[in-house]
Design a protein around this nucleic acid. Structure first.
Lengths: 110, 110
DNA sequence: GATCATGTTTCACAAAATGAAACACGGTAT
DNA sequence: ATACCGTGTTTCATTTTGTGAAACATGATC
């Protein structure tokens, strides 16, 4: 099991939650909003391509819609492998944090 | 606020939980155990140095102890800045995961 | 038919990760 | 004494990732 980089994790998460709306600019926008700083397009496309090569996600062109005169967007979607990778990261993350939580007083509320 | 890389996050977490025992080989060992794969020394020292430059952690030589004939180890410790960085990452991580949890059936218990 | 808006793609450069080797030095055995 | 072992630190060349900016495409709008 290979660990995901931070970018890969965030891109996968964003694609997962955006569902049918998971295309480059929207992904970038969502990640920027949540992390609180701007992400360049390169920072989105590079991990997208790499994740596609590794079969953690796939891409297809959208069906023609009324918007933008029927021009197509490239829509991304997770594969089962991609979802599994995220769940694995969550598991490892939880294990890494486990021993530390007791050191954070304000989080000790159950 | 700058995001931590994966290595940086894990190294900081490990240093935090190892406390007085936070030196290179032990850190590597702990991260390897928890993530389930081997980490080379470079993968530990590179982030350690960078984090020290950025004042997220400090290092000092241990006091002489009976073990190893009094030879000293380099012990690392988080600064308040380092702890804050971790807490911030946790916050962002939670926000990123938020929208996705509902898609994972087996996690919907609660 | 210029310009704008929305998306995609490409690229050169910078930063980070990795694996391996070199170095240091006390202990231990010969 | 001297060779080798164990533990720990440091350095380095190479590969992999991340980043910012520019180029390209095309329908809409004025």
């Amino acid at each position: 099991m290979k660990l995901l980089t931070r970018s890969e994790e965030y891109v996968l998460l964003s694609v997962w939650r955006l569902q049918e709306d998971a295309y480059s600019l929207r992904i970038r926008e969502q990640i920027s909003e949540i992390t609180g700083h701007e992400w360049s397009l390169g920072s989105i496309y590079t991990p997208l391509e790499r994740l596609a090569r590794r079969r953690l996600l796939t891409s297809r062109l959208s069906h023609e819609t009324p918007e933008r005169g029927g021009r197509k967007k490239r829509i991304y979607a997770l594969t089962p492998l991609g979802k599994q990778a995220l769940v694995d990261m969550q598991t490892v993350g939880t294990a890494m944090w486990d021993g530390v939580l007791s050191f954070i007083p304000e989080w000790r509320q159950a």
